[in-house]
């Protein structure tokens, strides 16, 4: 049970950084930390004690596999996380070229 709580603490660290930091790069880092904590939580839930990796080798008779479904979902989520991070970094570098700073308090034109 302690591993679930540690995952949740990692998520909270990311959330705290997301709300309190003022630097665009730090905000992107916080978002990816939150993503990572969710991935590890999903894979932890699907783990079975004494299970083997979900690959059929035919060497063992009547094997127990760990749950392959969360692994397949997390595989999709990792690639989407890469796409999001690349997009955010591209927007950050565009904003830096226009405003010469990463400070979100200085980027006034974003206010609605």
């Amino acid at each position: 049970m302690i591993v679930y709580i540690l995952c949740f603490i990692l998520f909270l660290v990311g959330l705290y950084g997301l709300i309190t930091r003022r630097n665009l790069i730090k905000i992107v880092i916080s978002l990816s930390i939150m993503e990572f904590s969710i991935f590890i939580l999903l894979v932890l839930i699907g783990y079975i004690d004494g299970g083997i990796a979900p690959i059929i080798t035919g060497l063992e008779s009547n094997p127990t596999y760990v749950d392959p479904l969360p692994q397949a979902m997390v595989l999709t989520a990792i690639v989407i996380g890469l796409a999001t991070t690349a997009m955010l970094m591209a927007i950050a570098i565009r904003l830096y070229r226009k405003y010469r700073t990463f400070d979100i308090r200085e980027i006034k034109n974003l206010k609605g």
Binding site: S32, V66, V74, L75, I78
Partner: peptide
């Protein structure tokens, strides 16, 4: 946690992310 596919994908994705961030 016996997820070798995820480990392979994650190491590639993490390296690409680090390269993009360092370039920025």
């Amino acid at each position: 946690l016996k997820a070798p596919d995820l480990a392979i994908v994650q190491i590639v994705v993490e390296t690409i992310t680090l390269i993009i961030m360092v370039a920025v």
